[in-house]
Computed example of a mutant assay.
Amino acid sequence: MTETTNVTLPAMRVSYEQGSLTESDLAATWHEQLQLWLDQAARAGLPEANAMVLATTDTKGRPSSRTVLAKGLDERGLVFFTNYTSAKSHDLMATRYASVTFPWFAMQRQAHVRGTVEKVGPAETAAYWASRPRGSQLGSWASPQSRVVTGRSNLESALHKIERQFADAENVPVPPHWGGWRIRPEEVEFWQGRRDRMHDRLRFRLGRDGWEVQRVAP
């Protein structure tokens, strides 16, 4: 018989002592700082360093969250790609607002981005699409994302059908139902864990006169 050990949730605790974050540490802009932390997470060998938890709400204010991958970052905002018929896209089309969190637990860091959203242009979408593996391209054609399916075999059948459809095509075209979303930040917060839960939280906030940096209590 295999022994099992129940996890005692109240007793689970980590002391955050890996680093600190001061105003003088920050890059000049939110996107340069986010790129810096992304680069450091990738160099540290963190799996899926560009993974971020995307939160959206529907028209009734009910929240949903899921993990997506950041695939674009510049002064305009943060980009990810998905099916435009998915649940997340329905939320985004309805509310035009989203937030994401990068949970770099191993580095005792998080970054939070909140802002309005817009669809990425066709040229930018096509450029990223061309960089994807063929299998991922075919999967995007085959999967009716977020819809109920009767079983795994239905998904496999749909994929085989798409494979036959594009068997002779050198390049798989971008599906009409697929593309990118850009989050245009209004707030970007950088969180560094500190001892005794006195964490460092520095936030870039967009105001009438441009971006300002604020320190937020932990």
Rank of each mutant, 00 (worst) to 15 (best):
R132A: 03
P218I: 03
R96C: 06
S64L: 13
N50P: 00
L46P: 05
V68K: 00
K119E: 15
M12F: 07
S89C: 02
H160Y: 10
Q108L: 01
R182C: 05
H112V: 15
T85V: 07
Q192E: 05
L46F: 10
V14I: 13
Q145F: 02
L36M: 07
F166A: 07
R66H: 08
P175G: 07
Q214T: 10
W129S: 00
F102V: 04
P175W: 01
V7M: 14
M93H: 07
W30K: 09
F105T: 12
T67G: 04
T101P: 00
L78C: 04
S89Q: 00
N50Y: 02
R205L: 11
D25L: 09
G45R: 00
D39S: 13
G45N: 06
V117P: 01
Q165I: 02
G77L: 01
S99M: 09
S89P: 04
P47G: 03
R132Q: 12
P218Q: 12
T150D: 14
A55V: 12
P185W: 00
L69D: 07
G115R: 01
Q145Y: 04
M12V: 14
A130N: 13
P47W: 03
F105V: 13
Q18P: 01
G45E: 01
S157F: 08
T29H: 13
T22E: 13
A98Y: 05
